[in-house]
Nucleic acid binder design. Structure first.
Lengths: 142, 142
DNA sequence: CAGTATCCGTGTTGATACTG
DNA sequence: CAGTATCAACACGGATACTG
């Protein structure tokens, strides 16, 4: 497992940025949100996250996400030595703290979505007007 | 400028996830942090972010980050029609709200870094022990 | 100064097949 | 069931050159 350049740089200069990225990663946010409700088994979590995320998490990505969060001490992995295998995932106390703060941020983006959408429409309209003006200008000069 | 598949999917099913990604993007976090202090000009911001981030932001990436945040209504762009050009960037009220919440999250990761590091050491030690056990086992069976 | 346009290396993602 | 291994696609970040 070689560490990527980006990660190596970030780790050296700003270690906590990495944790932030883990918390806010594509699937990290969703995993934390689900685990705030209750513990989950692997496949169960996969289905829940996929449903909520609107797209399937590959097993690989879920595994990767969970391992990263576990390594950071945010998620607890409880593997029971039975057949068929059973593994339960839950938040640690640390993870619960983090998840709560992520939730606050996510909630905010959700609440302010209307304003964001409005801003985007204004921005896009201005852009279009600007681009059209340039289009006309370039035709005139040819 | 074609929109990527990932972005298109996220936009359709979970619009506010995108805003979250913008806020917590590689350079977004740093730009917001700097702009919480005071308004900045483009190159000035480039230097400030590069210093704080430990690595240079390319003009392209800074431009892209700023445009995204501007489009979302989080950053205000004030271009003065003078020669040489002068453009000032600042947070909007909406942007200030978001930046504040990002700061809370970032601060938390910073404060808890010790616990995270400790958890990582435990995790890595366990992994090493496990991998070594497997190594020995596979040699024995050959 | 404040960008835009273009190209290219690289890492991350995800589908598929396989294992204990 | 709960993963690991492998590989292809693709999107991202960055270097460079150019513009108003």
């Amino acid at each position: 497992m070689t560490v990527s350049k980006r990660v190596a740089d970030a780790e050296a200069l700003c270690p906590h940025r990495l944790v932030l990225e883990h918390l806010t990663s594509r699937w990290g946010v969703l995993v934390l949100a689900e685990l705030m409700e209750r513990p989950y088994r692997f496949s169960e979590l996969r289905r829940a996250v996929s449903r909520f995320g609107g797209r399937n998490v590959s097993e690989k990505m879920l595994t990767q996400t969970l391992q990263t969060l576990e390594r950071d001490g945010l998620v607890h992995r409880d593997a029971k030595p039975v057949i068929p295998p059973r593994v339960d995932y839950s938040l640690t106390d640390l993870g619960r703290e983090g998840a709560e703060r992520v939730r606050v941020l996510a909630q905010w983006t959700h609440d302010r979505m209307d304003e964001v959408e409005k801003a985007r429409q204004v921005y896009d309209a201005k852009r279009r007007a600007y681009d059209e003006a340039r289009e006309i200008q370039s035709r005139a000069s040819s």
